[in-house]
Structure formats: structure tokens, C-alpha cells
Design a protein around this nucleic acid. Sequence first.
DNA 1: TATTGTTATACTCTATAACTATA
DNA 2: TATAGTTATAGAGTATAACAATA
Lengths: 146, 146
Amino acid sequence: MREGKPIGLLLVQTAKAVSRAFEDELAARGGSRPVWLILLALMDGAHRTQADLAAAIGVRGPTLTHHLGGMERDGLLTRKRLPENRRVQVVALTAKGRATFHKLRQGAMSFDRDLDRRFTRAEMVTLRDLLGRFGASATVGFGPDS
Amino acid sequence: MREGKPIGLLLVQTAKAVSRAFEDELAARGGSRPVWLILLALMDGAHRTQADLAAAIGVRGPTLTHHLGGMERDGLLTRKRLPENRRVQVVALTAKGRATFHKLRQGAMSFDRDLDRRFTRAEMVTLRDLLGRFGASATVGFGPDS
DNA sequence: TATTGTTATACTCTATAACTATA
DNA sequence: TATAGTTATAGAGTATAACAATA
């Protein structure tokens, strides 16, 4: 016998509200969720190919190409072919890209601080455990500081 | 000093995965999230105007019009003007609309049962409390049975 | 004038299929 | 043939601005 709103719905609605607020925060600093995730992945530096990068942020190849195109037009990154294997594109952040990363990171961190204040240490441990129980995977954090 | 992945990110990523799975479940039964939410709101029957309905499912007027248009074309509902106030549209489910509701409701309930099994009663109480702490609002459940 | 909803239009994110270039 | 990525195209969901009809 379950009580109250379905837990999946509660989770999804809660996350939708939080997600919207987070995206507003990023937008106020000239970013968006996909741009933030790409910057994060590039700063972490662990990916090798665009296919890897796409997988890291959870989209398909053409979707990544789409976002990289926009970011390249905005001067956030450059793409150039590897001489040894000209099929591969090497994606690198520009100074502006790194600056944007830091700007967005500020927003992301302040956003998270606000959420964080609502829970005690113990509650946070419990919450992480319970969220983990839904069986989703995860990759990124706030990324490196420099 | 916080530890691990930002809690907001964890929440959003978890919800994204759950949400995607839920939408696949609805899609397998010929629905979608917005259609499900609209059917649910109409079965609950608490709204009065389309503006209310839009607010209940968290979208703007034109977005609702867009979805109602599709659902009307699909024969799930009818719209007609109130004689007393011809600005107001009265939205009503057809038999097909109600049938679709029940079909999607099966999917939603079986989906939620799967999630539910992963938690004890006590954990569920805790989880609801903690999710509530994020400060999101909420309206719907599984709706009425008939 | 204010209210209710629609139309016109557009943007963002995403995807699949077909293609180019390279290996 | 297989691989890395792009182009072409499309579709879902959302929004704002302007509008029509009604009150």
C-alpha cells in the first residue's frame, strides 16, 4: 500500500523545478546546460574522441557536433584535425572558453551551496544513498579549478 | 566542505534517467509526458479554465493549446465554448481519451511499483521529506480510478 | 479596457539517415 | 570495409508577441 504522490513523479517534478532554476542561473551568465556540460568535460580532459565526449555528456554524435559548432562560432573552443589521423578532431578550449567555464562554475557552485544549506551532513549522506538507489549513473562534478 | 558530486547535479541526473525511462514507458503505450499530465489533470477534474490547466501542468497557454490541439485531432478530447461566457473553452475527455488515460495509468503504476520496491517504508518517508526540502511544488498523482 | 484563448513564429535540444573523408 | 565526424532533415516541447473574440 503506497501513500501519497508516486515517488517517480515526485522525483521528476522536484528535479524539473531544480533543473529549471539551475538553467536560469547558467543563462544569467550566458550559458546553458549542454554548454556547461561540454566545458566541464573538456576541463576534466579525460575524453579522447568526440564520440567519447558525446557519451560523457549523454548525447549522440550529431547533437554534439551541433553544440560544438555553436561554441566554436562563439569563440569558446577550436577544432583541428590530428595530423596522424585526420579523421579525428581535437577539441580545445580557448581563453574565452576557459573564462566562460569559470563564470558558469561560479553560478553552479553558488547554486549548489544554496541547496546544500538545506540539509545536515547526515541528511546529505542519506539523500545521496537514496538517490543512488534509483540506479542512475553519473560522471561530472564541478571540474578542476584551473 | 562538501563531498562528492554536487547534490543538485546528482538530483537532476538521477531524475533525467528516471524521467527518460518513464517517458519510454508512456511512449510504448502511445503517450507522452505532456499528454499524460493533461489526461491526469482532466480526470482529476479540478481545473476550471485552460489557464488553470496550463498552470497545473506547468506550461504556458500556447503550449497547452498546442497539446490540446494534438489531442483533439487524435480524438482524445473535445473543446467547446461555454454558452454563458463564450471566451471559455470547456475541455472534456472522450471515451478514447479515458481509455488512453487508463492505458497510460497502467504504465505509470507499474513503473512506480518498480521504483517503490527499491525502498523500505521508512526510507520512503525519509526520501519524501528530503525531496520536499528542495522546495518544489506538486499537484498530481495517478488520478482517479474511473 | 480586461480576459480567454489562438495563431504565427521561432528557439533549443535532440535524433536518425545519409554522406564525406580517411584509414 | 570500418571509423570519425558532419550535413541534412525532422520532430518534440517550449516560449513570446500579436491577435481575435468576448465581456
